[in-house]
Design a protein around this nucleic acid. Sequence first.
DNA 1: CATGAATGAGCCTTCATTCAT
DNA 2: AATGAATGAAGGCTCATTCAT
Lengths: 213, 213, 213, 213
Amino acid sequence: MKNREAKSNMIVDAAEQLFFSQGFKATSMDQIAREADVAKGTLYLYFKSKKELYYAVGQRAMECLKGMFDETSVAAKTGLERLFSYAKAFLKFQKEHPNYYDFIINYQGEKYKLSKQGREVKSTYEGSIHLFSSVMDSVKEGMEDGSIKVDMEPELLASLLWCEICGVAQFAGLRELFFKQFSSEVTADNIRDGFLNLTEFFISGQKKEEFDT
Amino acid sequence: MKNREAKSNMIVDAAEQLFFSQGFKATSMDQIAREADVAKGTLYLYFKSKKELYYAVGQRAMECLKGMFDETSVAAKTGLERLFSYAKAFLKFQKEHPNYYDFIINYQGEKYKLSKQGREVKSTYEGSIHLFSSVMDSVKEGMEDGSIKVDMEPELLASLLWCEICGVAQFAGLRELFFKQFSSEVTADNIRDGFLNLTEFFISGQKKEEFDT
Amino acid sequence: MKNREAKSNMIVDAAEQLFFSQGFKATSMDQIAREADVAKGTLYLYFKSKKELYYAVGQRAMECLKGMFDETSVAAKTGLERLFSYAKAFLKFQKEHPNYYDFIINYQGEKYKLSKQGREVKSTYEGSIHLFSSVMDSVKEGMEDGSIKVDMEPELLASLLWCEICGVAQFAGLRELFFKQFSSEVTADNIRDGFLNLTEFFISGQKKEEFDT
Amino acid sequence: MKNREAKSNMIVDAAEQLFFSQGFKATSMDQIAREADVAKGTLYLYFKSKKELYYAVGQRAMECLKGMFDETSVAAKTGLERLFSYAKAFLKFQKEHPNYYDFIINYQGEKYKLSKQGREVKSTYEGSIHLFSSVMDSVKEGMEDGSIKVDMEPELLASLLWCEICGVAQFAGLRELFFKQFSSEVTADNIRDGFLNLTEFFISGQKKEEFDT
DNA sequence: CATGAATGAGCCTTCATTCAT
DNA sequence: AATGAATGAAGGCTCATTCAT
């Protein structure tokens, strides 16, 4: 039954593409079937409903993010390094898979629209917890090993940084054209790098003088 | 014709609430009519189409944000102060009108789905430009008057801060329940305040020692 | 209450114009009200329903036709002359009031669509009887006075001629462009005149030789 | 795919009947679906829109008429004979398929309301041209072979006869009840036969004496 | 397993008619 | 008498889902 998984993947491929370009409601099962080159009825052999298909895409996005997180953090020595390897992974994820990123961000909101619950929601939710736990641990670790020097509760700092990173990830790309109107120097990459540099500088507690030099 | 505006507002009230909780596509004109306590046909006396109603909500959201921006920035002395009065206004806007905030954030995306353009899109886009210009001006001002001490192009710094603020605004509230699982101290307000304090401290270029104390 | 009739006429004017150019179903009471420059509610002060308005137009068309019939037949000396004065009146009516003509022709069909009965139907029906009676009388008269020489029951000949005239009236104009494709000589007027000349010649029983000359 | 055509035909059957009895606008897709005993959505599997269904009926009507024309004219020896075989075919068509006849007559008018053009319009228009060309050719032929003796341009005579035949076809049936009020002898068939006899007599140029006998 | 024809609930929008002012 | 805001039934069309083959 190797074949089954392959076909299922093809269907999710098709669905993914259409959901991303048109949104959930605007994508019809007809379109997905056509795109996946199967009959409409076949979709229902692999996914119980359109909703289910949507979840499958969410699953994929989350797994992709988890993969990039796990892959990246191995070489870190200090808490600060680990934290920033996560940050970089996150930004890289957004850059390389902007659709997956958007999907995850919008998931919760969209989901309310789909239905008030769903086992798949839980699954991605747990994924988020896992990721954020890693970030928080790295902050704690950094505070303990002295690589992070900020006078703030680690949970709060981690949350705050998480929000900042999400904001940079989301809007750096989305609004690149917008920002560029004011200066050609303001590219998505520059924003991302600027954020990483500035934040690392600040939370590592270096003196002002060191930064100016 | 006082009455007309009042009724129109009631309809937008109803539409707003439903769009916020279910999204554009998932909200039917029937529901809006029921919620607004008018007949379905009446909706079309006030708004040419469902799309038009959606725009009316967008208009409202943008005007609300602009109002809070304009109202807040008057008393500022330095560029730094002005910048942070904007930041506070933005966070306050998100806190007091989270739905409007989400609406504006999602506006662009949703709108592409509605139609490829539209005068209303332009209207909100221009609103964004206006707001961001103010932010950028305050950064430049702060760099000139010495209240902001960061070695970075003002446009880039402004863009970066904008992204961060958006991130904090959006996720502090949205994920409050999420963050709280790790520490009861991590509330949306704490995240917002933490962000403001930390960032003000950093970009005003105070020495580490001063912060620790 | 002179005013009442005047306003009623203005409304029928508006309705007439719109019914003719768009048809019954496609014309809305809103349009009629706008065209007549009165409020929508006012229409219902003068006409019980849209249907009623439609009938009023039918009434007008029939009265116009009757008027032209009565006006024309006075000077006739023989039955043949009277018959042809009717024929000419009919063709003239179609030419000068093609919309009224179409209206009358389509009345029956349309009416079935409106409802299965209606007093107005009767009214126009009686108008038709009146007109056709006149035609038939003129045929009888012509047979008696020798101006019509056809060996056929007068009722049948009258019916037959009526059908022919209706056909010429209806299609000469409607299909003018169509016929013209085959010869620029074939105009609506030529068809009408050709019909009158040929038919008069035939039913007056002139010899072939006379015609050829 | 034999089945597909069969079902498509059943749908057109239903649509035809309803369009004939109520008109285009007054017939709803719901009714058609009910009449055809299929679900409403099914209609759209076979016809892209209500308009398309209407065209399909028009197509049918035209093909039916063409079929009867082609079938009839084979045996004719002279132009006159051919002309009258067409005339008979036309009258027979109207008699056997009065709804199709009406449909074709009203087609043009109705269609303008539907949309300003359409390939189907062209299709029936071309059908008309084809038919009329045959009629005109037979008139020319008859003038050449001497079977038609009328001093008139063939195009004009053909046009005129066409109008007359249309009139007889349309009104003989439609007004049968009307005419009968004046004499029980005036039936639709008598009108049709009377028209054929009288006209044939006249345009074949026979002497009056021969007719009287 | 795979198909795709069939279903029917649901959507946006229109419009004849009513009625409080 | 006149208004025009309000109504709500209907209409054309879409699409997720089912099921006989």
